[in-house]
């Protein structure tokens, strides 16, 4: 944890994410407009009244941006949590118990893994029709846990061999305790990486589904903003603020999460470290104080 806070990438990433979360929570304080109401003329460029302009039907883009953040974040983190929880639980159980349990879970996992994710989501969302953000989160949670399960299972298999797990078994610890308190704390870095990756995936996929028109167009989220802007041919009519706002918002959040991801990777595997931990060494060599 401490090393995370000292890592520059992690700090920047966390700062970005924290900023977006704060803005989302403080939405009513930051704008007086209702994101769904017509508060201005259609496709007004950014002005003092509407800092990011208005949409095709006159809604304030900035209001939609920060209220939409709530939805995108909720779906992203909610689905991410669901994906990680399911994947971790199945991964640890199948990895530790082995035998028939492992066979069944692995078979199921491989099945889900083999089915192409996006087409499946498209079909499901189209089937449900006008899927609300909550439904999208649930669909993501139910279909995207397989990679996490495999990776967690692999980590569990290697932790299972360690002497302290054998010691717990010989001591007579019940299996559930071993999985929860001996194995889980030692695979936590892979769970963390899984979570961050799942959140990124959920945010982008939700936006994708909504952009393609499969979401509920009345919901306020960055994906539906993209959809509506695209439908209104915002770019061709010159209303760049309408479509670029959600684009940059998604990119910005994506950067924040990716930086955090890199940082956690670096800490989990010190050999990936970039940066200047060899600065002092290089200085000493150049000044002739020493050599290899």
């Amino acid at each position: 944890m401490k090393s995370l806070l000292r890592n520059r990438k992690a700090l920047i990433g966390l700062a970005i994410i924290a900023l977006i979360i704060l803005v989302a929570i403080a939405a009513p304080l930051l704008t007086q407009y209702d994101p769904n109401a017509r508060t201005g003329r259609p496709h007004q460029p950014p002005s003092m009244d509407h800092i990011l302009g208005t949409t095709r039907i006159g809604q304030d883009v900035f209001a939609r941006l920060i209220y939409g953040a709530r939805t995108s974040l909720a779906v992203g983190f909610g689905a991410g949590l669901l994906i990680t929880a399911v994947g971790t639980a199945l991964g640890i159980v199948s990895g530790y118990r082995g035998g028939k349990t492992d066979e069944v879970i692995s078979f199921f996992t491989n099945m889900v893994l083999v089915v192409p994710n996006l087409p499946l989501l498209l079909v499901l969302a189209a089937f449900i029709g006008q899927a609300s953000p909550l439904v999208i989160a649930l669909i993501l949670g139910a279909t995207s846990w397989a990679w996490g399960a495999r990776v967690t299972r692999a980590e569990t298999l290697s932790v299972k061999q360690k002497d302290f797990v054998k010691s717990a078994e010989m001591m007579g610890e019940p299996q559930w305790r071993i999985m929860a308190f001996e194995i889980f704390p030692n695979v936590i870095s892979i769970v963390g990486i899984n979570f961050i990756g799942s959140v990124i995936f959920a945010i982008i996929t939700e936006a994708t589904l909504e952009f393609l028109g499969l979401g509920d167009p009345r919901a306020v989220s960055w994906g539906t903003m993209l959809y509506n802007a695209q439908k209104a041919s915002a770019l061709s009519v010159g209303a760049w603020w309408d479509i670029l706002t959600p684009c940059f918002a998604l990119a910005f959040l994506g950067i924040g999460m990716s930086l955090l991801n890199f940082a956690v990777d670096e800490i989990a595997n010190p050999r990936l470290r970039t940066g200047n931990h060899l600065k002092r060494w290089s200085l000493l060599v150049r000044s002739g104080e020493g050599r290899l």
């Binding site: 360690k162 002497d163 302290f164 054998k166 010691s167 717990a168 010989m170 001591m171 007579g172 001996e182 704390p185 030692n186 936590i188």
Partner: peptide, 18 residues
């Protein structure tokens, strides 16, 4: 289990780092 206990070879691997 209570009556027969084991001490392992590797002092590093036999304690849970967490």
């Amino acid at each position: 289990r209570r009556s027969v206990q084991m001490i392992f070879q590797d002092p590093f691997a036999s304690l849970n780092p967490a």
